[in-house]
Design a protein around this nucleic acid. Structure first.
Length: 831
RNA sequence: GCCGAAGUGGCGGAACAGGCAGACGCGCACGACUCAAAAUCGUGAGGGGAAACCCGUGUGGGUUCGAUUCCCACCUUCGGCACCA
């Protein structure tokens, strides 16, 4: 046994012992409170990078801390193993994606093992395993039966590089690029499977109040769902056909001076006059050619044409012209708007360009009712004018009053619209769970029977360099008998979005590959119920913010559907969420091979050990902030561990110099040590609760510096010294699990440190013996008083005024006022 | 344009129910050990000034005995959304 700190020796040793003792096996125990700690599962790229370490090791420290505080902790890991990189590798190397994927998983298991995390490996689940995706398909089938899954022919986003359609959530940025590969997406008209997430839009917004998630994630989801409350109002065409519009400002109905339809609006044909037909057709064609990116450009000049048709405004029976323009989208609301140029910036720009009337119906905050030079859209000041029965109504009440009036007169009704679109889950890729659907010439769309699941991926797929899905060309896969009529039929060759596989993985972990090899039924449960009843829902989730409007929205939706299917009895899958920041290269930029600023965690672990890497990552700064990797700063954590080693190992040895009797330390020394210890326990306990690892480590360093300094004094001949060493190790255990267990055993303990209870801090023992009180004159520090804590205000004031420095500064002036904050300061105010 | 987060030493950061700005660490300087270096240990430092002191938490105002912390207006950076009616 070496007497020097040698992580390369002790870390593999402890990892092996922990595994042999099944130290992290999670077993239901009704006697103890449970804690389901979950971290976002990795994609098995084959290489665990620093980002994974930054995501996982603090998450592990948090889980370990809970465990030491009496919780029965489940901290599982698995692999989100379907996806395009495996398919691309298959095209490149000619190997099956499964081969590539499982080889990578093997490699990553070893890398994950080096972290020294308390992974509950027996709960591992791999989403590309047929026994896993059997259940993904089962969920699809359940969703289909429940009317949540449906098929639709519509314009969809398509990534030309990934060769597949994408969900709206996977299209990012103002250039509308693919979230995975960065290529700008194009629009295609395709028949695709979707999930009715919009049915849950309201609940997805409302229930954000019930979960402890970072505010910014809640805001992003709220904005993404984009609920707007207003009214639908029935206008009519001159010919009498109803023309329904959605507006958030029904109070401006009297200011509508024209209407605008989306070019694709079904009514356009009917209302277009003979004279305008050619212009309308030309505009429609032009709009159709343009994709949404071009149409959506905000600064684009407004375009549009008059249809020749007119509509009747139901509130005043006015006849107003109907235009078409591409700034109105068919996909939102009813695809038609009433234009109120006076109170909407877009309508204002349009009216100005085409010389249409701008009629003011809301006064300015000062009562101004004259012509406008720009749209006035404030909703908190002004009152209605030129609005018939509503003149004089303050805007604050206007929307609700007009909406009620519309309903009473059957002209419209209150309505809500969402920006959220249904979740497109079809992917034209091979390496995903096949959508379990069959198309039969006789029976139409036929779902694969539950007992026939899984629909297996072929293991002899042929990958084409064109990037097309091999399933389309795999005769054995594609052609089937119809489950209903037995006739020739065709399989769906699209696969499920991998986000669907990860939407329920926290449930899959409970009892991985549940009912493996058994036929499934409609009323099955995808996990062992008693296990789920104990662990669910997830208590603490950690992961990156990049999933704010993708995975984190989808898994909430999934859980709500599962609740409605009777699978779970709660509304939200994850009660608490923490988003870690991003670890950057030493140059402060995102790590990337092309930049050459990648830190390879394996190399750093070889050099310093996993404990140092863990501790350094947690020491950099607040976990949600991320930050640059500093190759020099990591030395500080390494030195800290070496100094802990020295303090603890030296204490094991005989410290009494020969011939000198052991001397008793003074009570002051002992109290000072005890105070430092309990201050540290209180501080570290508090910090660990909230993942403030950086300040927790700083406090541990302070304590160790203190112990290091006094280790050659008489305090070592005391019980408090030994309990300080013991508590230091206990507090280090979640962050530095290996060195903590090693030194713990060297102290003579026989069971693992990770089975011990977290030390209890005593505020009484942490209290300072004396406190420095600052003496200020006019807010500037001029002197200090050292007093016992809790000194009376009057005494502090008196003592301060006695100070020679104070009388000097006052130069004979009488204090006008003296502010005393006990234990803090005395501030003397003088003219 | 709208929404959100953040600006503190040479660097990462600490301290905000308003009360000694810069904990902890990196780097730096000096010293000890060494023939020397590395490692280790010790000491030191926000800037200016010989000192007394003065100035300092993005900028400018404000509230207060007192503001990194609260309020107002800007500037910069990052993230999200964007003709959503």
């Amino acid at each position: 046994m070496s007497n020097k700190y040698n992580p390369a020796e002790i870390e593999p040793k402890w990892q092996q012992i922990w595994a042999e003792q099944q130290l992290y096996k999670a077993v239901e125990d009704p006697e103890r409170p449970k804690w389901y700690a979950l971290t976002m599962l990795p994609y098995p790229s084959g290489d665990l990078h620093t980002g994974h370490w930054y995501a996982y090791t603090p998450s592990d420290a948090g889980a370990r801390f809970r465990r030491m505080n009496g919780y029965n902790v489940l901290f599982p890991i698995g692999f989100d193993a379907f996806g395009l990189p495996a398919e691309n590798a298959a095209i490149k190397h000619g190997a099956h994606p499964a081969q590539w994927t499982f080889a990578n998983i093997e490699q990553m298991r070893a890398q994950l093992g080096r972290m020294g995390a308390m992974w509950a490996w027996e709960h591992e689940a791999v989403s590309c395993d047929p026994e896993y995706y059997k259940w993904s398909q089962w969920f699809f089938r359940k969703f289909y039966d429940a009317g949540i899954a449906y098929r639709e022919y519509a314009p969809v986003d398509f990534c030309p590089t990934c060769n597949t359609t994408l969900a709206r959530e996977q299209v990012w940025g103002d250039d509308r690029h693919c979230e995975r590969c960065g290529t700008p997406v194009i629009k295609k008209n395709l028949e695709q499977w979707k999930f009715r997430i919009t049915r849950y839009a309201d609940e997805l917004v409302e229930m954000l109040d019930q979960i402890e998630w970072p505010e910014r994630v809640k805001v992003m989801q709220t904005n993404w769902i984009g609920r707007s409350i207003g009214a639908e109002v029935a206008f009519h065409t001159e010919q009498g056909e109803p023309l329904v519009i959605f507006t958030t400002r029904p109070d401006t109905l009297w200011g509508a001076t024209f209407m605008v339809l989306a070019p694709e609006h079904p009514l356009v044909n009917a209302i277009t006059s003979t004279e305008q037909r050619a212009a309308v057709e030309a505009y429609k064609e032009q709009a159709a050619r343009m994709d949404e990116i071009q149409r959506g450009a905000v600064d684009k000049e407004k375009t549009g044409v008059f249809t020749g048709g007119y509509a009747i405004n139901p509130v005043n029976n006015e006849r107003i012209p109907i235009w078409i323009a591409d700034y109105v989208m068919m996909g939102y609301g009813t695809g038609a708007i009433m234009a109120v140029p006076a109170h909407d910036a877009r309508d204002f720009a349009f009216a100005q360009k085409f010389g249409l009337e701008i009629r003011r119906v809301i006064t300015g905050p000062d009562g101004a009712a004259g012509p406008l030079t720009e749209a006035y859209d404030a909703k908190d000041a002004g009152e209605m004018v030129n609005s018939g029965p509503f003149d004089g109504t303050p805007v604050e009440d206007a929307v609700s009053k007009v909406t009620a009036w519309l309903e009473a007169n059957e002209l419209g009704r209150g309505a809500v619209n969402y920006r959220l679109r249904d979740w497109l889950i079809s992917r034209q890729r091979m390496w995903g769970a096949p959508i379990p659907m069959i198309y039969c010439a006789n029976c139409g769309v036929v779902p694969v029977p539950y007992e026939d699941l899984p629909v297996l991926l072929p293991d002899d797929a042929e990958f084409r360099p064109t990037g097309e899905s091999p399933l389309k060309y795999h005769e054995g896969f594609r052609w089937v008998k119809c489950p209903q009529c037995g006739g020739d039929a065709e399989r769906e060759t699209d696969t499920l979005d991998t986000f669907m596989c990860s939407s329920w993985y926290q449930y899959a972990y409970l009892s991985p590959y549940w009912k493996a090899g058994q036929p499934l039924k409609a009323d099955d449960m995808p996990w062992e119920k008693t296990v789920g009843d104990y662990w669910l829902p997830v208590d603490q989730y950690t992961g990156g913010i990049e999933h704010a409007t993708m995975h984190l929205l989808y898994t909430r939706f999934f859980t709500k559907v599962m609740r409605d299917l009777g699978l779970v009895d709660f509304d939200e899958p994850m009660l608490r969420l923490f988003n870690q920041g991003m670890i950057l290269g030493p140059d402060g930029e995102k790590m990337s091979k092309s930049r050459g600023n990648v830190i390879n965690p394996d190399e750093v672990v070889d050099r310093y050990g996993a404990d140092t890497v863990r501790g350094y990552l947690m020491f950099i700064g607040p976990w949600d902030q991320g930050g640059p990797w500093d190759p020099q700063a990591i030395e500080g954590v390494y030195r800290f561990l070496q100094r802990v080693w020295v303090v603890v190992v030296e204490a094991m040895q005989v410290v009494q110099p020969q011939g000198k009797p052991a001397r008793t330390p003074s009570p002051d020394q002992l109290r000072a040590l005890e105070r430092k210890l309990h201050q540290t326990i209180l501080k570290v306990t508090d910090d660990m609760q909230d993942f403030r690892f950086n300040t927790a480590i700083a406090a541990l360093m302070e304590l160790n510096n203190y112990l290091y300094k006094v280790r050659e004094t008489d305090v070592v001949n005391s019980a408090i010294w030994h309990s300080a060493l013991r508590d230091l190790l206990l507090m280090m255990a979640p962050i530095f699990p290996h060195i903590a267990d090693e030194l713990w055993h060297r102290q003579g303990n026989t069971s693992s440190i990770h089975l011990q209870r977290w030390p209890a801090g005593d505020p009484e023992k942490a209290r300072e013996a004396e406190i420095t009180v600052v003496v200020q004159i006019n807010g500037k520090v001029r002197d200090r008083l050292v007093v016992a804590p809790g000194a009376a205000k009057a005494d502090l004031e008196g003592a301060a005024l006695q100070l020679s420095s104070v009388t000097k500064w006052l130069e004979g002036r009488a204090p006008r006022r003296v502010i005393v904050v006990p234990d803090k300061l005395v501030n003397i105010v003088a003219d």
